[in-house]
Simulated scan of single mutants.
Amino acid sequence: MHTVWKGAISFGLVHVPVKMFTATEDKDVHFRSIHKACGTPISNVRTCIHCDKEVGLDEIAKGFEYEKGKFVLFNEEEIEALKPESARVIQILDFVDLTDIDPLYYQKAYYLSPDMSGAGAYSLLVEAIKQTGKIGIAKISIRSKSSLAAIRVIDNCLCMETMHYPDEIRSLTQVPNLPEQANINEKELQMAKMLIEQLSEKFDPEKYTDDYRIAMLDAIQHKIAGQSVDIVSTPDTARSNVIDLMAALQASLEAAQAPPPATTPRTKRKSTPKKTKEIS
């Protein structure tokens, strides 16, 4: 894995030298814009509409728009000088219970490994966090972005998850159409709780797959082989606003209690060969 940050975890007067690695990876299917006429990728060119010319990277500064059409400019040296001490230190401020943090605050996950001769201090912090059941709340700066972070343990590895600051979380008052007062039918509530219990099980991440990505990769292989891709019309899912909740809950409970259907071999879909156009 590629090291994305080097520094130290600091709690009290203890410093633990660490390296940081991204814990997740992007597996989305990414497309490029292609000119249909000749099959050439379209380039994104930086241009100045005032000078009507292409602009090189060495001619570009960072600017903040403080009024419409007015910018204050910063060069890289000025931005570097403003970086806080946490640019090289993950400073743990507090230790809290994991259940105290709403998942809404989490951003991106990283793995931390011991650096240089810090294996002893690293192992000490891992074991201390394990035995207390706490997680550390820290401050860190990565790529000019200051973030809160949660430091916890997965197996024998320290894991850090960057977090939003409270003022970055939008207020619930901005969410439209939230019911002010709940008017719940007691029978419907009991059935809903029964359905939740029926569908409850231990979390197993391996059972969940990205069906859209799998279908897209399959379609890409068909295209490469010069075959057509089946186009299925989307069913009309429009429904009446009036829903018989009791009937829906009852049907859901019956479906959840029914044994799973026997699996049948998946048939290959038929595809029509199609001539491919060579791109030089």
Rank of each mutant, 00 (worst) to 15 (best):
M1K: 13
V4L: 14
A8F: 06
F11R: 00
T24Q: 07
E25H: 09
D26E: 09
D28C: 12
V29R: 11
F31V: 03
S33K: 14
H35R: 11
K36S: 10
K36D: 06
A37M: 11
C38R: 10
R46V: 10
T47D: 11
I49W: 14
I49F: 15
C51A: 10
I60D: 06
A61K: 13
F64P: 06
E65N: 01
G69R: 04
G69V: 03
V72Q: 04
E78T: 12
L82S: 15
E85C: 08
V96L: 03
T99I: 08
D100R: 02
Y106V: 00
A119M: 04
L125N: 03
I129S: 04
G136F: 01
K139V: 07
R143I: 10
S144D: 15
L148E: 00
I151R: 00
R152F: 02
Y165I: 04
D167N: 00
S171V: 05
L172W: 07
Q174W: 04
P176D: 06
P176V: 07
P179E: 04
E180N: 13
Q190S: 14
E197N: 12
K207P: 05
Y208W: 02
D210H: 03
I214M: 14
I224N: 13
S233Q: 11
S252Y: 13
L253A: 06
P260C: 08
A262D: 09
K268R: 15
R269P: 11
P273V: 15
